[in-house]
Protein backbone atom coordinates (compact mmCIF):
# COMPACT_ATOMS: atom_id res chain seq x y z
CA UNK A 1 0.00 0.00 0.00
CA UNK A 2 2.86 2.35 0.86
CA UNK A 3 4.28 1.78 -2.64
CA UNK A 4 0.95 2.80 -4.18
CA UNK A 5 1.03 6.02 -2.14
CA UNK A 6 4.64 6.68 -3.18
CA UNK A 7 3.72 6.13 -6.82
CA UNK A 8 0.82 8.55 -6.54
CA UNK A 9 3.00 11.15 -4.84
CA UNK A 10 5.74 10.73 -7.46
CA UNK A 11 3.14 11.22 -10.19
CA UNK A 12 1.51 14.33 -8.73
CA UNK A 13 4.19 16.27 -6.96
CA UNK A 14 5.30 18.05 -10.12
CA UNK A 15 1.95 18.28 -11.86
CA UNK A 16 0.80 21.79 -12.72
CA UNK A 17 -2.46 21.31 -10.81
CA UNK A 18 -0.51 20.57 -7.64
CA UNK A 19 1.37 23.86 -7.99
CA UNK A 20 -1.78 25.83 -8.80
CA UNK A 21 -4.10 24.30 -6.24
CA UNK A 22 -1.92 22.95 -3.42
CA UNK A 23 1.54 24.51 -3.28
CA UNK A 24 -0.19 27.82 -3.97
CA UNK A 25 -0.92 28.11 -0.22
CA UNK A 26 2.66 28.36 1.10
CA UNK A 27 3.80 30.26 -2.01
CA UNK A 28 1.00 32.84 -1.86
CA UNK A 29 1.29 33.35 1.89
CA UNK A 30 5.07 33.72 1.64
CA UNK A 31 4.65 36.39 -1.04
CA UNK A 32 1.87 38.25 0.79
CA UNK A 33 3.54 38.21 4.19
CA UNK A 34 6.95 38.95 2.71
CA UNK A 35 5.42 41.95 0.93
CA UNK A 36 3.75 43.22 4.09
CA UNK A 37 6.99 42.85 6.07
CA UNK A 38 9.01 44.63 3.36
CA UNK A 39 6.46 47.42 3.30
CA UNK A 40 6.73 47.67 7.10
CA UNK A 41 10.50 47.96 6.84
CA UNK A 42 10.46 50.92 4.50
CA UNK A 43 7.18 52.68 5.32
CA UNK A 44 7.19 55.59 7.75
CA UNK A 45 6.10 54.47 11.21
CA UNK A 46 3.28 56.44 12.89
CA UNK A 47 2.63 56.50 16.60
CA UNK A 48 2.19 53.02 18.09
CA UNK A 49 -1.44 51.98 18.59
CA UNK A 50 -2.82 50.24 21.66
CA UNK A 51 -1.31 46.76 22.18
CA UNK A 52 -3.35 43.92 20.67
CA UNK A 53 -4.78 41.48 23.24
CA UNK A 54 -2.97 38.13 23.27
CA UNK A 55 -6.13 36.12 22.56
CA UNK A 56 -6.87 38.25 19.51
CA UNK A 57 -3.29 37.98 18.26
CA UNK A 58 -3.40 34.19 18.59
CA UNK A 59 -6.80 34.00 16.89
CA UNK A 60 -5.57 36.20 14.02
CA UNK A 61 -2.54 33.96 13.57
CA UNK A 62 -4.83 31.00 12.75
CA UNK A 63 -6.51 32.83 9.86
CA UNK A 64 -4.94 30.47 7.30
CA UNK A 65 -7.22 27.64 8.41
CA UNK A 66 -10.28 29.63 7.34
CA UNK A 67 -9.15 29.47 3.70
CA UNK A 68 -9.67 25.73 2.97
CA UNK A 69 -13.10 25.77 4.59
CA UNK A 70 -14.24 28.83 2.63
CA UNK A 71 -16.05 28.44 -0.69
CA UNK A 72 -13.05 29.44 -2.87
CA UNK A 73 -10.76 27.23 -0.78
CA UNK A 74 -13.07 24.28 -1.29
CA UNK A 75 -13.22 24.97 -5.03
CA UNK A 76 -9.44 24.62 -5.09
CA UNK A 77 -9.56 21.39 -3.11
CA UNK A 78 -12.28 19.98 -5.36
CA UNK A 79 -10.30 21.02 -8.44
CA UNK A 80 -7.21 19.24 -7.22
CA UNK A 81 -9.17 16.11 -6.26
CA UNK A 82 -10.81 16.19 -9.71
CA UNK A 83 -7.40 16.12 -11.38
CA UNK A 84 -6.16 13.35 -9.08
CA UNK A 85 -9.15 11.05 -9.56
CA UNK A 86 -10.61 11.94 -12.96
CA UNK A 87 -7.22 12.72 -14.55
CA UNK A 88 -6.60 8.99 -14.98
CA UNK A 89 -9.60 8.79 -17.32
CA UNK A 90 -8.45 11.81 -19.33
CA UNK A 91 -4.89 10.53 -19.65
CA UNK A 92 -6.22 6.99 -20.25
CA UNK A 93 -3.74 5.74 -17.65
CA UNK A 94 -5.93 3.50 -15.51
CA UNK A 95 -4.95 0.83 -18.07
CA UNK A 96 -1.31 1.30 -17.14
CA UNK A 97 -1.69 0.92 -13.38
CA UNK A 98 -4.74 -1.27 -12.77
CA UNK A 99 -3.00 -4.54 -13.68
CA UNK A 100 -0.24 -3.59 -11.21
CA UNK A 101 -2.29 -3.01 -8.07
CA UNK A 102 -5.71 -3.81 -6.59
CA UNK A 103 -8.29 -1.19 -7.41
CA UNK A 104 -9.19 -0.33 -3.81
CA UNK A 105 -5.53 0.41 -3.09
CA UNK A 106 -5.27 2.76 -6.06
CA UNK A 107 -8.26 4.75 -4.79
CA UNK A 108 -7.02 4.69 -1.20
CA UNK A 109 -3.61 5.96 -2.38
CA UNK A 110 -5.33 8.84 -4.15
CA UNK A 111 -7.22 9.81 -0.99
CA UNK A 112 -4.02 9.62 1.05
CA UNK A 113 -1.96 11.72 -1.36
CA UNK A 114 -4.67 14.34 -1.96
CA UNK A 115 -5.17 14.82 1.78
CA UNK A 116 -1.46 14.46 2.56
CA UNK A 117 -0.38 17.10 0.02
CA UNK A 118 -3.06 19.51 1.22
CA UNK A 119 -2.17 19.05 4.89
CA UNK A 120 1.56 19.55 4.15
CA UNK A 121 0.82 22.70 2.14
CA UNK A 122 -1.56 24.12 4.72
CA UNK A 123 0.72 23.37 7.69
CA UNK A 124 3.61 25.01 5.81
CA UNK A 125 1.43 28.03 5.00
CA UNK A 126 0.27 28.17 8.62
CA UNK A 127 3.84 28.18 9.89
CA UNK A 128 4.72 30.92 7.39
CA UNK A 129 1.72 32.96 8.56
CA UNK A 130 2.71 32.47 12.18
CA UNK A 131 6.31 33.44 11.50
CA UNK A 132 5.11 36.49 9.54
CA UNK A 133 2.82 37.53 12.38
CA UNK A 134 5.66 37.19 14.89
CA UNK A 135 8.07 39.19 12.71
CA UNK A 136 5.37 41.82 12.11
CA UNK A 137 4.81 42.18 15.85
CA UNK A 138 8.55 42.59 16.41
CA UNK A 139 8.58 45.27 13.72
CA UNK A 140 5.85 47.11 15.62
CA UNK A 141 7.48 46.67 19.00
CA UNK A 142 6.99 43.34 20.67
CA UNK A 143 4.61 40.40 20.97
CA UNK A 144 1.49 41.07 23.07
CA UNK A 145 1.92 39.90 26.64
CA UNK A 146 0.41 36.47 27.23
CA UNK A 147 1.26 34.98 23.84
CA UNK A 148 2.88 31.68 24.76
CA UNK A 149 4.06 28.81 22.62
CA UNK A 150 1.59 26.47 24.32
CA UNK A 151 -1.35 28.80 23.69
CA UNK A 152 -0.36 29.29 20.06
CA UNK A 153 0.12 25.56 19.51
CA UNK A 154 -3.26 24.78 21.07
CA UNK A 155 -5.08 27.39 18.97
CA UNK A 156 -3.44 26.20 15.74
CA UNK A 157 -4.06 22.54 16.53
CA UNK A 158 -7.72 23.33 17.17
CA UNK A 159 -8.10 25.41 14.00
CA UNK A 160 -6.32 22.76 11.93
CA UNK A 161 -8.40 19.86 13.21
CA UNK A 162 -11.63 21.85 12.69
CA UNK A 163 -10.62 22.45 9.07
CA UNK A 164 -9.81 18.80 8.48
CA UNK A 165 -13.35 17.46 8.26
CA UNK A 166 -14.53 19.93 5.58
CA UNK A 167 -11.36 19.16 3.60
CA UNK A 168 -11.92 15.40 3.82
CA UNK A 169 -15.61 15.87 2.98
CA UNK A 170 -14.75 17.90 -0.13
CA UNK A 171 -12.16 15.33 -1.26
CA UNK A 172 -14.53 12.41 -0.63
CA UNK A 173 -17.34 13.86 -2.73
CA UNK A 174 -15.05 15.15 -5.48
CA UNK A 175 -13.55 11.64 -5.68
CA UNK A 176 -17.01 10.12 -5.94
CA UNK A 177 -18.07 12.59 -8.64
CA UNK A 178 -14.85 11.86 -10.55
CA UNK A 179 -15.40 8.11 -10.56
CA UNK A 180 -19.05 8.54 -11.54
CA UNK A 181 -18.55 11.13 -14.29
CA UNK A 182 -15.01 10.14 -15.41
CA UNK A 183 -14.44 13.81 -16.22
CA UNK A 184 -12.41 16.56 -14.54
CA UNK A 185 -14.76 19.29 -15.74
CA UNK A 186 -17.93 17.51 -14.62
CA UNK A 187 -16.35 16.79 -11.23
CA UNK A 188 -15.44 20.45 -10.74
CA UNK A 189 -18.91 21.63 -11.79
CA UNK A 190 -20.67 19.20 -9.44
CA UNK A 191 -18.33 20.12 -6.56
CA UNK A 192 -18.89 23.84 -7.10
CA UNK A 193 -22.64 23.27 -7.29
CA UNK A 194 -22.50 21.41 -4.00
CA UNK A 195 -20.70 24.28 -2.25
CA UNK A 196 -23.01 26.90 -3.79
CA UNK A 197 -26.15 24.97 -2.79
CA UNK A 198 -24.71 24.61 0.70
CA UNK A 199 -24.36 28.38 0.96
CA UNK A 200 -27.91 28.90 -0.32
CA UNK A 201 -29.38 26.18 1.86
CA UNK A 202 -31.46 28.45 4.11
CA UNK A 203 -33.05 30.13 1.07
CA UNK A 204 -33.72 26.85 -0.71
CA UNK A 205 -35.10 25.26 2.45
CA UNK A 206 -37.41 28.20 3.11
CA UNK A 207 -38.68 28.02 -0.49
CA UNK A 208 -39.46 24.29 -0.36
CA UNK A 209 -40.79 24.47 3.18
CA UNK A 210 -43.92 26.15 1.83
CA UNK A 211 -44.69 23.13 -0.37
CA UNK A 212 -43.54 20.18 1.74
CA UNK A 213 -42.56 21.23 5.26
CA UNK A 214 -42.11 17.74 6.69
CA UNK A 215 -40.05 16.49 3.77
CA UNK A 216 -37.93 19.65 3.70
CA UNK A 217 -37.27 19.36 7.42
CA UNK A 218 -36.28 15.71 7.06
CA UNK A 219 -34.04 16.35 4.03
CA UNK A 220 -32.25 19.25 5.71
CA UNK A 221 -31.49 17.07 8.73
CA UNK A 222 -30.36 14.09 6.68
CA UNK A 223 -28.38 15.54 3.77
CA UNK A 224 -24.75 16.51 4.31
CA UNK A 225 -25.20 20.10 3.13
CA UNK A 226 -26.82 21.30 6.36
CA UNK A 227 -24.25 19.56 8.53
CA UNK A 228 -21.38 21.12 6.61
CA UNK A 229 -23.02 24.55 6.93
CA UNK A 230 -23.74 23.86 10.61
CA UNK A 231 -20.10 23.02 11.34
CA UNK A 232 -19.02 26.21 9.58
CA UNK A 233 -21.59 28.16 11.60
CA UNK A 234 -20.28 26.61 14.84
CA UNK A 235 -16.73 27.55 13.85
CA UNK A 236 -17.91 31.16 13.52
CA UNK A 237 -19.69 31.11 16.87
CA UNK A 238 -23.33 30.76 15.87
CA UNK A 239 -25.10 27.54 14.92
CA UNK A 240 -28.71 28.35 14.07
CA UNK A 241 -29.80 27.96 10.45
CA UNK A 242 -33.32 29.00 9.45
CA UNK A 243 -35.13 26.68 7.05
CA UNK A 244 -38.75 27.73 7.36
CA UNK A 245 -40.82 30.80 8.26
CA UNK A 246 -40.76 29.96 11.96
CA UNK A 247 -38.32 27.08 12.01
CA UNK A 248 -34.70 27.18 12.97
CA UNK A 249 -32.53 24.12 13.02
CA UNK A 250 -29.83 24.18 15.63
CA UNK A 251 -28.21 20.77 15.94
CA UNK A 252 -25.13 20.34 18.09
CA UNK A 253 -21.57 20.36 16.72
CA UNK A 254 -21.15 16.67 17.56
CA UNK A 255 -24.37 15.66 15.79
CA UNK A 256 -23.26 17.39 12.61
CA UNK A 257 -19.75 15.98 13.04
CA UNK A 258 -21.01 12.40 13.13
CA UNK A 259 -23.58 12.98 10.39
CA UNK A 260 -20.89 14.38 8.12
CA UNK A 261 -18.50 11.56 9.03
CA UNK A 262 -21.21 9.08 8.01
CA UNK A 263 -21.62 10.89 4.69
CA UNK A 264 -17.87 10.84 4.11
CA UNK A 265 -17.76 7.09 4.77
CA UNK A 266 -20.72 6.60 2.43
CA UNK A 267 -19.04 8.64 -0.31
CA UNK A 268 -15.84 6.63 0.16
CA UNK A 269 -17.65 3.31 -0.02
CA UNK A 270 -19.61 4.49 -3.05
CA UNK A 271 -16.37 5.47 -4.78
CA UNK A 272 -14.73 2.12 -4.06
CA UNK A 273 -17.75 0.02 -5.05
CA UNK A 274 -18.32 1.91 -8.29
CA UNK A 275 -14.66 1.75 -9.24
CA UNK A 276 -14.42 -1.97 -8.44
CA UNK A 277 -17.16 -2.72 -10.97
CA UNK A 278 -16.18 -0.18 -13.60
CA UNK A 279 -15.22 -1.30 -17.12
CA UNK A 280 -12.22 0.60 -18.49
CA UNK A 281 -12.50 0.55 -22.25
Amino acid sequence: MLDAVRAEALKLRRHRATWLMVWIYPIAFTLIIGGVLLYGLFAAHGPAGPPQPAAEWIQDSTMLWKVPTSAPGRFLIAGFAAVVFAGEYGWNTWKLIIPARTRWQLIAAKWAVTLGFLVIALVAADLITLLGGWLGSLQDGQLPAGVTLAAVAEAHWKAGTHALLPIIYTIAFAGLFAILTQSILATVILSIAMVVIEGMLPLIAIFFHGYAPALTSWLVKVLPLYHMANLNAWAKGGAAIPFGPNEILSLSWTTSFWALTAWIVAAGLGTQLRFLRQDLN
Binding site: D3, A7, K11, R16, L96, A100
Partner: peptide, 15 residues
Protein backbone atom coordinates in the same frame (compact mmCIF):
# COMPACT_ATOMS: atom_id res chain seq x y z
CA UNK B 1 3.40 15.55 -18.00
CA UNK B 2 6.06 13.06 -16.85
CA UNK B 3 9.20 11.95 -18.63
CA UNK B 4 9.47 8.45 -20.06
CA UNK B 5 11.73 7.42 -17.17
CA UNK B 6 9.42 8.91 -14.52
CA UNK B 7 6.47 7.09 -16.06
CA UNK B 8 8.35 3.84 -15.60
CA UNK B 9 9.24 4.87 -12.02
CA UNK B 10 5.57 5.45 -11.26
CA UNK B 11 4.68 2.07 -12.75
CA UNK B 12 7.50 0.34 -10.84
CA UNK B 13 6.34 1.86 -7.55
CA UNK B 14 2.75 0.85 -8.31
CA UNK B 15 3.97 -2.67 -9.00
Amino acid sequence: FLSGRDNLRVLARTQ
